[in-house]
Computed example of a mutant assay.
Amino acid sequence: MPRAVAGAGRGAVVDRSDGAGTVAADLDAHRGALRGAAFRMLGTLADADDAVQEAYLRWVRLDPDQRAGIAAPGAWLMRATGRICLDMLGSARARREQYVGEWLPEPTPLSGLPASVPDDPLERAIVADTVSTALLLVLETLTPAERVVFVLHDVFAVPFAEIAEITGRSPAACRQLASSARRHVGRRPGAEVTRRRHDELVAAFAAATATGEIAALVQVLAPDVTLRSDGGGRVSAARRPVAGADAVARFLLGLARKAPDAAYGQVETGDGLSIVIRQGGAVSAVVTLGTDGDRVTDVWIMRNPEKLGAWR
């Protein structure tokens, strides 16, 4: 993914402030891009908001003369956010070792992605892909430095010279980190599957699930399909991955039988078409899928209420 995302690139965060507005207004002009970058680095909107808030506090703590001497407030804020995220990633990994059950990145509706989403369908798909569950899970396997460098350079087009200031590494070292991260990202399962084909398989999955028949559902699942469910210890969820087409089909149909009043709908997310489940009018789960172009290879179920805030 060597290109920058349209609408979320460097120009979105480095425009020179005209000094006419208040400090708050100047900061708000960059909030979307900062939140988008932090989300891609950290995987949850709550953590992203904490990082952006801390960057804002550091900006506000500068005296007026210092702020006046900064030609590009957005670039300064992006560097500050990157440093904060780099620090947070270390502690986040420690917290996830204590996490109850499976940890999954937070799914977001496309209309609520934490960055501006362009009107052009191709650019819209590129923006969405950078917050897909599949990509965010791959980013989780990178070192904190690789993840920060990849997001800032490949997604937000921040120059390596500026990233070097954030990471404490040389520009050449940052290029190597970006290259390593890019190789991992390019090898992720389903990377070559078109959005259209993905959505066709989601629709087939939904139709098969609606039949209530195990055989019908097994037909759309890859033999080695894996299901992961994130309840965060707050709601019921599978504590360990469920593997194999028959086991996953039985698990899914068992969930459906336990919640006969649930309403199922389809919604566009960073992964493409996904399934949203509502009970009593409130969103109780979001199901996103990974595919190999032929069958469903991964089922990710988000049930943790703390990660469903964007759906309320």
Rank of each mutant, 00 (worst) to 15 (best):
G11D: 09
G186W: 05
P171N: 14
R187K: 05
I84P: 01
R228A: 09
A204I: 08
T288A: 07
D28N: 12
D47E: 07
D18W: 10
G244L: 10
P118F: 01
S111N: 00
L34H: 04
W103H: 02
A115T: 03
E162S: 13
A51S: 08
S116D: 12
A285V: 03
P223I: 01
E54C: 01
A4V: 13
R295M: 04
A161S: 15
D261P: 00
A24I: 07
I126W: 03
D26Y: 06
P114I: 05
G244Q: 08
V296L: 04
G232Q: 10
F156Q: 14
V202F: 05
L221M: 03
A178W: 00
T44F: 00
V138R: 03
A145V: 14
A115D: 05
D129S: 12
E97V: 14
I301K: 00
G90I: 06
R67P: 08
L135V: 07
I126T: 07
R196I: 09
V218I: 10
P189W: 04
F39C: 05
F251E: 11
H30S: 02
R257F: 06
D271H: 02
E106C: 11
G74S: 11
A164Q: 10
V248Q: 05
P121H: 07
R3L: 15
R83E: 15
L27D: 00
G74T: 08
P159Q: 04
G254T: 11
D87S: 14
G168H: 14
P171S: 10
Y99L: 07
R96M: 10
H30I: 02
I163D: 05
E268V: 15
A46C: 09
P105D: 05
F160M: 11
G90A: 08
R147C: 14
L227H: 06
H184D: 10
G186S: 14
A25E: 15
